[in-house]
Design a protein around this nucleic acid. Structure first.
Length: 156
DNA sequence: GCCAACGTTGGC
DNA sequence: GCCAACGTTGGC
């Protein structure tokens, strides 16, 4: 079982949007970074657990948990000229971008703030806490997951 | 809104 | 292949 953190801007799509979708499921599309793409395409597996992280907003941090309900397939938005994510250099035969489906699992009682995550002594390797971090799909080690999950779900 | 950090593009 | 210019991300 793999563990991941996916970033999203809640003004566009946040944990509440995911919870409100039919079957609480949504394609995680629009990823347009090669390192993130490679994780999505090659490493993210059905049943893996995912922290949904809210970025570029008032309360930055881990907002909830989802699981991967469908493994990588060609991101349809890359073929749609109307889409913000359209990529004219991508073809159906040789798609450049991939997405997975994620399904809502649970919401944190409160956002676990980035400042708190950074203050956890054993969270030092997670790309999220590194300087200049821009990776939108990143692996989380099991020990990291357990610690973050406990912190995120603890009601205080 | 600011700005640092980073990824991508394109001329050479 | 180098690297400057540019666009984007993302915390604050």
């Amino acid at each position: 079982m793999g563990y991941w953190l996916f970033k999203s801007e809640p003004d566009t799509f946040g944990i509440d949007d995911l919870a409100g979708r039919p079957n609480k499921t949504e394609p995680w599309d629009g990823v347009r970074n090669y390192q993130a793409r490679n994780f999505l395409r090659d490493k993210v597996k059905q049943g893996d657990k995912v922290f949904i992280y809210h970025s570029s907003c008032k309360h930055v941090g881990i907002a909830g948990v989802a699981r991967v309900s469908r493994e990588a397939y060609a991101d349809p938005t890359q073929f749609n000229p109307e889409s913000h994510y359209y990529d004219p250099k991508s073809t159906e035969d040789n798609p450049r971008w991939y997405c997975v489906d994620v399904t809502f699992v649970e919401k944190c009682p409160d956002i676990l703030p980035l400042s708190v995550i950074k203050a956890l002594p054993s969270i030092t390797d997670l790309p999220l806490v590194k300087k200049g971090n821009r990776l939108s799909i990143m692996p989380v080690e099991k020990q990291e997951w357990d610690l973050l999950y406990q912190a995120a779900m603890a009601a205080d």
